[in-house]
Design a protein around this nucleic acid. Structure first.
Length: 885
RNA sequence: GCGCGAUUAGCUCAGUGGUAGAGCACUUGCUUCACACGCAAGGGGUCGCUGGUUCGAUACCAGCAUCGCGCACCA
């Protein structure tokens, strides 16, 4: 074996192993396998997206679960893919074309524009897939899917047709959320409300029947006055009852409109009068329906005013028009005052511009199976981690509204509906509709709906339409879905509904048709200051740069260690650095082992547990505990806990204590002992590598191979098993002794440091102990203390002035007098104060009658023992203080 | 307004009905034969506030405060 370099070099190791795994088809799932299945479908990233830290978090977790399952003997399918991201991709291409060719999509026409999008997709598409490979993701790339794959697209359309035939999809003219920037309808979920500082404009409308008398109304949107078709007050509002049935003059686009009464008006708000604008507000629309008001739309799709009768406003952008309208009202004497006002305005999640509520003819889905979808989660057929998301999910389903699924976008799945040409011209008549996966037989007489479907209307089938029949049979329902909570409605809930409605499972039972058995929601990654990561803030680091700097394994481990117990994550690059440092630590402790000759084949090797040192017994016991803790943490999807347990075990238990103690034997003359110690090191190290492999696949594979722990890849190595230690007598007693030794060592080190002795200076200690088993442990204690010599003397009385401390094994003292008596006095005083403090709390407890009577006997005993020990320690330290004087 | 979550060391976060933890940062000593991306030692916390349950509460319960998130909103 060649000597390893001091530092692990991920750049040399990671690509090499990834390529090997691909070449060996290690990630390809076999549908015919007899192993039990484990499957995950990857939440598909946007086809033109690039890797973000959010993806790293998500996909690392999925990779961990998959790799662990592989080691546990499951047949694993991790199915990757991408989605076409209708609006997002189209917007990006439009922006690009405007910049480079100064043309809109309409300049190109549909066909040419789509050709351009495909060009764009070929150029920018799929980058993220290559990035995921650099992260080490063990996806079955042979099964990679895309939402626009022919078969998948066909399925999306079939589903549309099916739901249409069931009467669940319908076309209707309704209030929808209009995005004037993207110029498309959006679903309710794509609207986010934000508080906005605006103004409240108080406007007077003259009463037609009583010239000179006015009705005052407060509005935030004076630019929609031309669309007012009534004024309304609450029926119980006595101030206005006598005006019911009369009319007012609309001050812009002057016309007479009626005064009505409606329950929806809050008499407390402002003047208690509402201007009713049915075309531009959903509450007003409902009022309009109740009172049979006309609907006047004064907005172009792009948000400009469409009102030829008010020339000064016509054609203005809605926000410019707001100011202009106020001006006009002012000059016409209709504006009485304005007030600063803060209200919530719906913004487009896509374009970040205010949404226009707008009447529009769109396609809607009346959700099926909502009760069933509630039930499968409530009854834990689907388990949600962390569980509190169940409530959020239920809340949404309980208040669910029809889903507007049509988008005025060209890039996506075209709506499979056609309208008959001639009838379409007839006024007021519903045109005849043909809905089918295949176009109508006489296509010349029909024109297809120009719109496409919401991208989520395709991804809700992702859990099973990505699988061929055989794959579905083996791997559906999937084992777990890993995703961020911000798409719980967009995707998670809708997938559950799709599974229950379309029933792709092997039987008709719900448990065979749900898309996944577990859902794990990750946290959201925020920056140091707690802000969401976003492109516009520029606070999102490039994971590829992080991989260059710290290695994929370092990035993965660093992120997982701080990641999710369902909380949001404050990201700090320091944490990734720690991940890299941990990789280096692991590398070096393996390097140490490798310097001492060939390893035993520790994979499945048996340890001769009759000849173990007490330190070996301790580390093996700690390994057992770690295995249990890790298993438990995995069961709860507590990845940070898994990482932390492994980190602590490797760094503290293995490196700091066991390996340091073991050096006595490794560098010693007793070959049998040396061999036994090395065998323990191999055993533990091979366990460490296997436990860490899901988190750090590359370095563990490299070390597995370098140390010769297995002939084949670590990926399929047997899971780590606890070691029984059957032939060891009195394990607890031996562990107790090790623990006492370690505490003694720490006390000794402290004594030296507090006495200001340089840590590299040779120094003698005397341990005054009657512990029988100690003498053979002296070499280890000496090494751990980095001492020149440790003398054991059960009768030893430290000379006055020699620093002394109390340990579980007895007193330990330095062989030399304290150089600085004052410092020594202070040290003793501090120690005495600490012990007196502890003594006091223990005494108080034991003085309390009800504590002694009612607390469990073992707790009381524990405190009694403590009291005894502390008193003894205190006496000895006080003696030392006396001696000093 | 309704719901959810958080509040523990300077920072990021674990945690437990009985003695408060880690990493980073900080101070000190050390290039000791795996590792300075390291080793060793140390300082630092009324566990948000107020009640309740309990022999005992940082932990369990209730209320409050602050912050964050989601849903619904009055123009």
């Amino acid at each position: 074996m060649a000597e390893l370099p001091k530092r692990y070099d991920p750049k040399a190791v990671e690509p090499k192993w990834y390529q090997r795994w691909i070449d060996d088809h290690d990630f390809v799932a076999n549908s015919k396998s007899s192993k039990p299945p484990f499957s995950i479908v990857m939440p598909p990233p946007n086809v033109t997206g690039v890797l973000t830290l959010g993806h790293v978090l998500n996909d690392t977790i999925q990779d961990i679960l998959c790799r662990r399952a592989r080691m546990q003997g499951f047949e694993v399918l991790w199915l990757p893919g991408m989605d076409h991201a209708g609006i997002g991709t189209q917007t990006a291409v439009e922006k690009y074309l405007r910049r480079t060719e100064n043309k809109t999509r309409h300049d190109f026409g549909r066909e040419e524009f789509l050709r351009r999008v495909l060009e764009w997709q070929d150029k920018h598409g799929g980058i993220i897939i290559e990035q995921l490979k650099r992260l080490g993701c063990s996806c079955d790339w042979s099964r990679q899917r895309y939402t626009l794959d022919e078969g998948y697209a066909h399925a999306v359309q079939s589903v549309f047709v099916d739901l249409y035939n069931k009467g669940l999809i319908y076309r209707g003219r309704r209030m929808i959320n209009w995005d004037p920037a993207a110029q498309t309808a959006l679903s309710d979920e794509e609207v986010v409300s934000k508080p906005q500082k605006g103004k409240l404009y108080f406007v007077q409308y003259e009463i037609a029947e009583e010239a000179g008398r006015f009705l005052e109304v407060a509005t935030t949107r004076p630019e929609t006055i031309m669309a007012d078709t009534a004024m309304a007050f609450h029926p119980g509002d006595t101030r206005y009852v006598n005006l019911l049935g009369k009319h007012v003059w609309r001050p812009l686009a002057r016309e007479k409109i009626p005064i009505i009464a409606d329950e929806a008006i809050d008499p407390e708000f402002a003047t208690g009068v509402l201007k009713v604008t049915p075309a531009h507000d959903s509450v007003d629309f409902e009022i309009g329906q109740r009172h049979d008001l006309p609907i006047i739309d004064v907005l172009h799709p792009d948000g400009r005013i469409n009102c030829p009768t008010e020339l000064e406003l016509n054609g203005l952008d809605r926000f410019k028009a707001r100011e202009k309208a106020a001006e006009l009202l002012q000059t016409r004497g209709a504006l009485t005052k304005t007030e600063a006002y803060e209200n919530n305005v719906g913004f487009s999640d896509r374009s970040d511009v205010p949404i226009e509520p707008r009447i529009s003819e769109q396609w809607f889905l009346r959700y099926p199976k909502t009760n069933e979808a509630l039930a499968v989660v409530r009854n834990h057929l689907i388990r949600v981690f962390p569980a509190h998301w169940e409530k959020v999910y239920a809340q949404w389903l309980e208040n669910i509204r029809d889903w507007c699924i049509s988008r005025q976008v060209w890039w996506g799945h075209r709506i499979p509906a056609w309208y008959r040409k001639q009838k379409a011209e007839g006024r007021g008549q519903r045109s005849e509709i043909y809905v089918g996966v295949e176009p109508p037989p006489d296509p010349d007489n029909w024109v297809q709906d120009p719109d496409t479907l919401d991208t989520w209307f395709s991804s809700w089938l992702w859990a099973y339409e990505t699988m061929d029949e055989e794959t579905q049979k083996k791997f559906y329902p999937t084992s777990v879905l890993v995703t961020a909570p911000d798409i719980i409605f967009f995707w998670v809930a809708r997938m559950i509904i799709a599974g229950l409605e379309f029933r792709p499972g092997k039987s008709d039972r719900d448990e065979d048709n749900i898309p996944f058995r577990h859902v794990y929601f990750t946290g959201l990654i925020r920056d140091k200051r707690g802000r969401k990561m976003s492109k516009s803030l520029g606070n999102s680091p490039d994971p590829l740069e992080l991989i260059d700097k710290y290695g994929a394994d370092g990035l993965r481990f660093g992120l997982m260690r701080i990641a999710p117990s369902g909380q949001d994550i404050r990201y700090d690059e320091k944490q990734i650095e720690e991940g890299r440092n941990f990789a280096t630590k692991l590398w070096n402790v393996a390097r140490l082992r490798q310097m001492h000759g060939e390893t035993s084949n520790a994979f499945g090797a048996k340890i001769d547990d009759k000849h173990l040192s007490i330190y070996a017994i301790e580390v093996l016991s700690r390994l057992n505990e770690t295995i249990d803790a890790v298993d438990a943490a995995y069961r709860d999807y507590q990845f940070n806990a898994v990482a932390q347990h492994l980190y602590d075990f490797v760094w503290s238990d293995y490196c700091d204590w066991f390996v340091e103690a073991a050096k006595t034997e490794i560098f010693g003359d007793d070959d049998a002992r040396k061999k036994s110690t090395l065998a323990t090191m191999d055993f533990v190290l091979s366990a460490i590598l296997r436990l860490l492999h899901p988190f750090m696949p590359h370095i563990t594979e490299e070390l597995w191979s370098l140390l010769g722990f297995g002939k084949t890849s670590i990926q399929f190595a047997a899971p780590v098993q606890k070691i029984a230690l059957d032939n060891v007598t009195d394990v607890p007693g031996k562990r107790e002794l090790v623990s006492a030794i370690y505490r003694t060592v720490q006390t000794g080190r402290n004594l030296r440091a507090e006495s200001k002795l340089q840590s590299n200076r040779g120094i003698g200690f005397i341990l005054c102990s009657n512990e029988k088993l100690i003498s053979e442990q002296l070499p280890a204690i000496t090494r751990l203390l980095n001492a020149e010599e440790v003398k054991l003397d059960g009768e030893y009385q430290a000379p006055a002035g020699n620093p002394v401390a109390v340990t579980p094994l007895g007193e330990i003292s330095l062989a030399i007098a304290a150089a600085d008596k004052e410092r020594e006095r202070e040290r003793l005083a501090k120690e005495i104060a600490r012990i007196e403090n502890e003594l006091r709390t223990a005494e108080e407890k034991l003085k309390n009658k009800s504590f002694v009577e009612r607390a469990p006997a073992e707790v009381v005993d524990e405190h009694r023992t403590r009291l005894k020990n502390l008193s003894a320690q205190l006496a000895r330290l006080k003696q030392a203080r006396e001696d000093l004087n």
